[in-house]
Amino acid sequence: MDKIGELTVFAKVVDEGGFSAAARAMNLTPSAVSKQIGRLEDRLGVRLLNRTTRSLSLTPEGRSFYERCTRILSDIDEAEAEVTSAHTTPRGMLRLSCGVAFGRHQVSPLISEFLERYPDVQVEMIQTDSVVDLVEQGVDLAVRFGELQDSSLVARFLARSKRAICASPEYLERHGVPQHPSELQDHNCLFFSTLPHLNEWIFKVPEGEYPFRPQGNFSANNGETIHDMALSGLGIARLAEFLVAPDVRDGKLVRILQDYYRDITVPIHALYPTRRHLSPKLRAFVDFLVEKFSPVPPWERL
């Protein structure tokens, strides 16, 4: 038996007041317990216990050794409990990556509630519209839109997001409301400067798909700024429903060309590197996002 095992047997003999009682408590035979104590004393070169046929008592060396043993065994129990707790209780730093607009409008408002539930967790939020390498940059979780490209990541479905072609009532009053996607070429369209895949506006027409590349006098590298410009009446934009739904409800923006665009949706996933040994903090946060965004995302409840 290893040293920790010997210490455990010795402490149990003292606590139970005899070899037989210790043997019953540990599901061992009395002879096995006696041999362990004998080996321990031989290794230490001192007698730890005074034995008679009717009683057992500690020698002075044995009492000092017992006090140290109980402290050591208690420290081991506490260390194991701490490690076990770390694998069952969410705690520690969680690094989260998500898009600027989605992070600000949909994820950030939820963080306070999550941290109230799990006060031992700290969250670092990285808002960027660029694709982050989770492993290389030490990110625990990313929330991403679109079809999945990296098969090495584990994906948890959150929701589907529609996009809307929209403009302010003031813009539409000045320039008219387009009735067909082809009429967008006569309008000032707002587009992304650094995310070319977002500048492919695909419409559904009776003949099939109608692709359109927006042109206009303003572009930006994020949806937040394009959203602001659409609200200001500068032009027509294609933006996510999670961003524009409150404005449509309040009459600040108007959806247009819905018959050509209403069925086009984009999946949203929570992505993380591996299923093996998934940390409690990550599991808790992913489950929390699923709870908040499924089965109906909050922007569709307005």
Rank of each mutant, 00 (worst) to 15 (best):
Ser193His: 07
Leu278Met: 11
Thr88Gly: 11
Leu49Met: 05
Gln215Asp: 10
Arg39Phe: 14
Arg54Pro: 09
Glu6Met: 06
Pro280Asn: 05
Pro280Gln: 09
Phe19Ala: 15
Gln137Cys: 07
Gln149Phe: 09
Arg91Cys: 00
Arg249Cys: 03
Phe288Arg: 06
Asp2Arg: 09
Gln149His: 06
Tyr210Lys: 05
Val33Pro: 04
Ile165Glu: 00
Thr88Arg: 13
Pro109Leu: 02
Gly99Lys: 03
Gly216Ile: 05
Leu257Cys: 01
Trp201Ser: 08
Arg63Leu: 03
Phe157Glu: 10
Glu291Leu: 10
Gln36Ala: 13
Val205Glu: 03
Arg54Gln: 15
Glu291Ser: 10
Glu200Gln: 11
Ser219His: 06
Thr29Ile: 14
Ser151Ile: 04
Ala79Glu: 06
Ser31Tyr: 15
Phe157Leu: 14
Thr8Asp: 10
Ser294His: 09
Leu58Arg: 00
His227Thr: 06
Arg213Cys: 07
Gly99Glu: 07
Asn199Gln: 09
Gly17Ser: 08
Leu148Glu: 15
Ser64Cys: 07
Leu190Tyr: 04
Ala23His: 14
Ser85Gly: 15
Ala25His: 09
Glu200His: 12
Asn221Phe: 01
His105Thr: 08
Leu48Arg: 01
Ala81His: 09
Val123Lys: 00
Pro90Val: 00
Glu200Thr: 14
Val139Cys: 08
Val123Gly: 00
Val131Phe: 13
Gly138Trp: 13
Ser64Pro: 02
Gly176Arg: 10
Leu243Cys: 11
Ser168Asn: 07
Ile111Cys: 05
Arg163Gln: 02
Ala32Lys: 12
Asp287Ile: 10
Thr29Gln: 14
Arg144Gly: 03
Tyr171Glu: 11
Gln122Thr: 07
Glu116Tyr: 06
Glu6His: 14
Ile202Arg: 12
Ser20Gln: 14
Phe293Asn: 06
Ala32Arg: 15
Thr59Gln: 00
Gly92Phe: 04
Asp15Val: 04
Ser31Asp: 10
Thr53Cys: 04
Leu282Thr: 03
Ser168Asp: 13
Asp2Tyr: 15
Ser55Asn: 13
Phe192Cys: 05
Pro267Asp: 03
Val266Gly: 01
Arg213Ile: 12
Phe102Ser: 03
Ala270Ser: 15
Glu67Leu: 05
Ser232Cys: 11
Leu282Glu: 03
Leu148Trp: 12
His197Asp: 14
Val131Glu: 13
Ile37Gln: 09
Val139Pro: 02
Val177Cys: 11
Ser193Asn: 11
Gly5Tyr: 12
Leu278Asp: 06
Phe10Lys: 04
Arg213Tyr: 13
Arg47His: 15
Leu96Cys: 03
Asn27Ile: 13
Val9Ala: 02
Gln137Glu: 08
Ser130Cys: 15
His227Phe: 15
Leu243Ile: 14
Ser182Met: 15
Leu7Ile: 02
Val143Gly: 02
Thr265Met: 06
Pro109Gln: 02
Val100Phe: 08
Val244Gln: 02
Thr84His: 14
Cys98Met: 07
Leu195Gly: 01
